[in-house]
């Protein structure tokens, strides 16, 4: 089955954290314990949005050792494709949902002498579970968390009171910026750097770290790419003998699923490689938006990641 083994859960609690963010708590439907997980893991939530099937990845923020339930936080994005709006508007306590097992593409390197964490906005969520994991099993950390303003700084107060000087907060509207260059220079050898936030922040942190002599292998980042919108296009699926039309707000993967094609997937964010699909013929341009294929592979055009990437042109034939 595509996407691996599933977990059947019930929404136990929905909490409005601030004007932008809601927190959801899921418990297993049969009352059994949910699997434990590792800090930085995410789950994929399956939604039936009035006939449109949406599968969105969300980082787990609860204690990885707490098997009584999972918690996620969702930032409402009115300009997005609709998953976060659906979570905010339609998901209420008592509702039944299907989620994936926890998956981790943003794990702590447990050999590290120290963990340096940089979060922007809703990017704080994977660090919440990682910090709880470090609380159980030991490990030094230092967190730098930047938000637009105090009102949307989710969980900042709790982090500060629990961890004191190890937590540093920055508010854009008060002109505060993470003093990154200085922070990077004073870290002991063997420190690993983790960053989660908007794309601009990721690029800034990775570039600054490289310039400061940090090896790429010591810098970890998680970027969930929303599939993004684009022009309507169609694709022929050679193996299943079907042709699908991909709508403006739909991904190629979603269009295949809607046509009843069992296509593999995991992260649905262009990162894990599971949905990699061979391109049989391409008369036009592949719009690669994934971070899985190498630049050389993207240029070669023999493969596409249908969870995020699109096509513009005359004919696209896929081996699916």
């Amino acid at each position: 089955m595509s996407g691996g083994a599933k977990l059947e859960v019930t929404v136990a609690e929905v909490v409005e954290v601030n004007a932008l963010i809601k927190r959801f708590r899921f418990v297993s439907r049969d009352g059994a314990a949910l699997p434990a997980f590792s800090g930085g893991s995410h789950i994929v939530v399956e939604m039936d949005d009035h006939g449109v099937r949406r599968l969105n990845p969300y980082s787990l923020m609860s204690d990885p050792a707490d098997t009584s339930g999972y918690e996620i936080s969702v930032r409402r994005d009115d300009a997005g494709r609709g998953g976060s709006v659906f979570m905010h508007s339609h998901v209420t306590p008592g509702m039944r949902l299907t989620i994936s097992h926890p998956l981790n593409f943003f794990a702590l390197d447990t050999r590290a002498k120290k963990h340096l964490m940089i979060a922007g906005g809703i990017g704080i969520t994977p660090f919440l579970s990682q910090i709880k994991q470090l609380g159980h099993f030991g490990g030094r950390f230092e967190l730098h968390y930047a938000t637009r303003n105090r009102d949307v700084a989710a969980y900042a107060t709790g982090l500060k009171s629990a961890h004191g000087d190890r937590v540093n907060l920055y508010y854009d509207d008060e002109g505060q910026v993470v003093p990154l260059a200085e922070v990077l220079t004073r870290q002991p050898i063997g420190t690993h750097l983790y960053v989660c936030g908007p794309k601009g922040m990721l690029n800034w942190v990775r570039k600054t770290a490289a310039a400061a002599g940090w090896p790429a292998q010591s810098v970890h980042f998680e970027e969930f790419l929303a599939p993004g919108t684009g022009l309507v296009f169609s694709a022929q699926l050679a193996r299943s003998g079907k042709t699908v039309t991909v709508g403006t707000h739909q991904s190629l993967l979603e269009a295949m699923e809607a046509a009843g094609v069992d296509a593999p997937y995991l992260c649905r964010g262009g990162a894990c490689g599971q949905c990699e699909t061979n391109v049989i013929r391409c008369d036009g341009t592949l719009l690669h938006r994934d971070v899985w294929l190498s630049p050389a592979e993207q240029a070669e055009g023999a493969k596409i990641m249908p969870c995020v990437s699109r096509f513009e042109g005359k004919t696209l034939v896929l081996d699916r």
């Binding site: 691996g4 083994a5 699997p35 997980f37 994936s100 995991l266 894990c272 490689g273």
Partner: peptide, 11 residues
């Protein structure tokens, strides 16, 4: 290796 890196809990 590619296969195993995708190995999931429960599977």
């Amino acid at each position: 290796l590619k296969f195993l890196l995708k190995l999931q809990q429960g599977s």
